[in-house]
Amino acid sequence: MSNTENIQINKILVVGLGLIGASLCRALKNNQKYDKVLGYDCDRDVTNYALKNNYVDEVSLDLKKGINDSDLIVICVPVHQIKYILNIAKDYFNTEKIFTDTLSTKNTILEFMNNNNFLDTKNFVLSHPMAGTEHYGIKNSKSDLFFEAVTFISSLVDLNLDNINKVKNMWESLNCNVVLIDPKIHDEYLAIISHAPHAISFALSKNTNTQYLSKKFPEINLKGSLSGMTRIANSEPEAWASIFKDNRSNLTKYIDEYLEELGELKSMIASENDDALVSYLKKSKPIK
């Protein structure tokens, strides 16, 4: 029997109180399934804001103490900060504590576990709720951000099923739709459905800015196709730079495929073959 099998989840510590972490705290507080929701962030102004607005029951100013006082720890920091958190949390791997995360890529976590001989860790469940907006920071958090969000859960080698279920139950208590997936397939899939669209949006927005269209026609960014396609380019640059770098092998492969596809479309537009262009556009309609 696992040493976590009879452990009940009463206290949850959320590490990182940005958009995702603060929204998670608010959602957990609202559903009242757990006795206490604790929050940790390296920015004291952020923890004060969380406490003042009742997003958390308590704040922890010391991460190790916060982990020690909690049953389930949810890591909600950006990719470029995850190694720092894991280096502190590793003393609690393979204990009665349960860890999970919300990262959009799993490569850095898997590398850390592999390089430090923690791949047999049985109390770390990889999670990724497909939720968010182009806005960021605690002041943009939403208590219903995770409602009906698809949430991927991945396991390390020989992960304890009871731990998976405890993490799964937490997400389902927030009305998330949980999907089990291999972590490497997760990163491949996210490159297609999330990371590449963000990269394309950033590139399109930058090109538009270069053309000075925003200054000539300010209303161009308010409505229409361009606004719809560049909305997510307002996302936090530092966070997305770290996501792009962490999933670079999958992302660059898909960008190459996209450029090839765009080149084919460009050739058809330049040609005299109208039927071929219409046929291409018909085949491009989203599958529902």
Rank of each mutant, 00 (worst) to 15 (best):
N3L: 15
E5I: 03
E5Q: 14
V14A: 01
V14H: 10
V15D: 05
L17G: 10
G18W: 06
G18L: 14
G21D: 02
C25D: 14
K33A: 08
K33I: 09
Y34M: 04
D35M: 12
L38F: 13
D43E: 09
V46G: 01
T47D: 07
N48W: 04
Y49P: 11
L51M: 14
N54W: 05
V59D: 08
S60R: 04
K64S: 15
I67P: 05
D69N: 14
S70Y: 07
L72F: 03
I73R: 05
I75M: 09
C76W: 02
P78C: 07
Y84S: 04
D91E: 15
E96N: 13
K97T: 03
I98A: 04
I98S: 03
L103A: 02
T105K: 08
E111I: 06
F112C: 15
F112W: 03
M113T: 04
N115F: 12
N117K: 11
F118E: 06
F118R: 05
F118L: 05
L119G: 05
T121F: 01
N123Q: 03
F124A: 03
F124W: 07
F124T: 06
F124S: 10
V125N: 00
L126K: 00
H128I: 07
M130V: 13
M130P: 06
G132L: 02
T133R: 10
H135W: 12
K139Y: 11
K142P: 00
T151N: 06
S155D: 05
I164H: 04
V167T: 05
N169T: 03
L174V: 12
N175E: 13
C176T: 11
N177C: 13
N177E: 12
V178W: 08
V179S: 04
I181A: 08
I185G: 01
H186F: 08
H186P: 05
L190F: 12
L190V: 06
L190R: 01
A191T: 07
I193H: 09
I193M: 09
P197R: 09
H198E: 06
A199S: 14
L204S: 10
N207A: 12
N209T: 07
L213R: 01
L213Y: 14
S214D: 14
K216F: 13
K216N: 11
P218E: 08
E219Y: 11
I220P: 07
N221H: 09
N221Y: 14
L226R: 02
G228I: 12
I232G: 12
N234L: 11
P237Y: 08
E238L: 14
S242N: 06
D246L: 01
N247D: 10
K253Y: 12
K253I: 02
D256I: 00
D256E: 15
Y258L: 15
E261P: 00
G263H: 08
G263R: 07
E264F: 01
L265E: 10
I269Y: 10
A270Q: 11
L277F: 13
L277H: 03
L277Q: 04
P286G: 00
P286H: 04
I287M: 08
K288T: 07
